[in-house]
Amino acid sequence: MRFVLLAALGLTCALPALAADLPPKPARLGLCAACHGETGMAQIPAAPNLAGQRLDYLRSALKDYRDGTRNVPLMRTAIGPLSDAELDQLARWYSAQTPQPQAAAHP
């Protein structure tokens, strides 16, 4: 019983520290959130979930969309004007989010 109490106390003390490690919400999140959700869980069927994706993958993909290497006009339009620093903020934000289970579609 003592172990359980100590573990619970340790977890309670660690939670604020873990929350402090989350990156700040990017100022340019709005357009992304319209399709991918603010926490990276897609809002529309064609959009992929971004929550919990690898940081290096997201950085690379965002730059490829912006620069036209990945030829997706909607993405290029949405992130075309963003700087490398802004893309990095978005990648950090989405990679730090925790994926959530999807609700089952009802026919």
Rank of each mutant, 00 (worst) to 15 (best):
S60C: 11
D88M: 02
K25T: 15
R54C: 01
D67W: 08
R54E: 13
R54L: 09
G10Y: 02
M1Y: 04
C35S: 09
A7I: 11
A17G: 07
L50I: 04
D88K: 03
L5K: 12
P16G: 04
L55N: 08
Q53R: 13
L18T: 00
R2G: 00
A51C: 11
T39H: 08
P26C: 06
G37S: 04
L87V: 08
D84C: 09
L29V: 12
P16Q: 03
L31C: 04
A8N: 04
H36W: 10
P23A: 11
Y65V: 09
K25M: 14
R54D: 15
G30K: 06
T12Q: 03
C35Y: 06
K25C: 11
D88L: 14
R76T: 14
L87C: 03
T69C: 00
A34H: 04
T12V: 15
D84Q: 15
G37R: 00
S95Y: 02
A91C: 10
P24G: 12
S95E: 00
L5V: 12
I79T: 04
R70P: 00
L9N: 05
C13A: 13
L55K: 15
Q102W: 05
M1S: 13
P101L: 06
A20G: 10
E86N: 01
A34E: 12
R28I: 05
E86A: 01
N49E: 10
Q100K: 14
Q97H: 05
Y57I: 02
C13H: 03
L58Q: 00
D67E: 14
T12Y: 08
L11F: 14
L74W: 07
Q43Y: 10
P81F: 06
G30M: 11
L50W: 03
P45G: 13
H106N: 06
R54G: 14
P101D: 02
D56T: 12
A46I: 15
R54F: 07
N71V: 10
A33S: 09
P99C: 02
A27H: 04
C35N: 05
L9R: 10
R92P: 01
A46Q: 10
R76H: 13
G68M: 03
A61T: 09
